[in-house]
């Protein structure tokens, strides 16, 4: 009984609860910026800010690609594999097939969406846990990509791709960041103001109740996975622009932790039924800040993993105790 109450309470966090978590997170990011810029003056140099913005854009979109499936109560372990498949497909279309840039980008995005659709379709048709389906498909996609490309990167891409990645607006802002923010706005509108968005959240919060009230739960899950694939492919395209090349090593399991860090830090529940678009962006900012800060401080990449793991642990535990606290308070009010 108590478990159920907690779940109910937690799947509909009030506006204040969500906002307070995000303000807390934002405060942590601000403190870290203060610390890093005091310890290492190079942290706020234009070149470093540009670098932070560029990786932040990718981290945000990777976080979104996980968030949209978390909303349905599922998960997508194949984000990295789908991302890298899209990257290599684009590389192939540009370099070997000689396609113009817009068509090649569209091809990569389309492949990502198609692979995501495949995941969703398999999950809905078999009724098997999303975890196991996407674990298997991650290996399937990555394996197929490696077999087809023989793990050879595409280095001779048209120069305008790399130029776009190096472009700076106003001295230190990457246009990639604007793309990430635009996607955030679109997702915010989707979940807040459209029927489909509300249906996705309803299906995530309580699939049976949603089904009974006429929400096509299966279709909604497939759409969410397709969207996840599309977003993973978008993150892949951003990496192509950043590196100026299509590398087979950019995705895979490396995306797994960041993809969960952003949404979970931002307050998206694993149980489904809620999303935190702005929270995911702030969560990604925290990850990027720590990564860049440790790099500037020359702590080295080796300890980074430890920090990220500890932060994730601290964040989920803080979230858990905040939930219990809020529940006690609301019970006291009754």
């Amino acid at each position: 009984m108590t478990d159920e109450t907690i779940i109910k309470e937690r799947s509909r966090p009030g506006f204040i609860a969500g906002a307070s978590a995000q303000i807390g997170l934002l405060a942590i990011v601000a403190v870290l910026w203060l610390v890093f810029s005091t310890l290492a003056p190079g942290f706020t140099s234009p070149i470093n800010l540009f670098g932070i913005g560029r990786s932040l854009a990718v981290d945000i979109v990777i976080g979104f690609s996980q968030m949209v499936v978390l909303a349905t109560g599922g998960m997508n372990l194949a984000v990295g594999s789908i991302g890298v498949c899209a990257v290599m497909a684009t590389g192939f279309l540009l370099q070997d097939a000689g396609m113009p840039v817009p068509i090649a980008l569209a091809g990569g995005l389309l492949l990502g969406a198609a692979l995501g659709w495949l995941n969703g379709f398999a999950i809905v048709k078999t009724g098997v846990n999303a975890f196991i389906i996407t674990l298997a498909s991650a290996s399937l996609f990555l394996g197929a990509m490696l077999i087809l490309t023989k793990a050879v990167p595409y280095n001779a891409l048209p120069p305008e791709i790399g130029q776009f990645g190096r472009m700076r607006i106003g001295g230190y802002v990457s246009p990639l960041l604007f793309i990430a923010i635009a996607i955030g706005v679109a997702l915010f509108i989707l979940y807040r103001h459209t029927l489909l968005g509300r249906q996705i959240l309803a299906a995530g919060a309580n699939p049976r109740a949603a089904e009974m009230s006429g929400v096509p739960v299966g279709r909604v899950i497939i759409i969410s996975h397709t969207l996840s694939g599309l977003l993973a492919a978008t993150a892949g395209m951003m990496l192509v622009a950043r590196l100026g090349a299509a590398m087979p090593s950019v995705g895979g399991e490396d995306w797994l932790l960041p993809s969960f860090l952003g949404p979970v830090l931002g307050g998206t529940l694993l149980a489904g039924g809620s999303v935190a678009v702005i929270g995911t962006m702030i969560g990604a900012a925290l990850v990027t800040t720590i990564r860049s800060g440790l790099l500037v401080l020359q702590v080295g990449n080796f300890w980074l993993q430890l920090f990220l793991g500890l932060i994730l642990l601290a964040a989920v535990m803080a979230d858990r105790y905040r939930g219990i606290f809020l529940e006690r308070r609301s019970m006291g009010r009754k």
């Binding site: 998960m75 694993l270 990449n301 430890l306 990220l308 793991g309 994730l312 989920v316």
Partner: peptide, 27 residues
């Protein structure tokens, strides 16, 4: 103790364990 999904807990500890491993050995 936390009642949080084991997936997310072990994802976090996995990163922490790898971090300690790499920090000690420097690869």
């Amino acid at each position: 103790r936390t009642g949080i999904n084991g997936f997310i807990i072990t994802l976090a500890t996995a990163s922490a364990f790898t971090g300690i491993n790499l920090g000690i050995t420097q690869s």
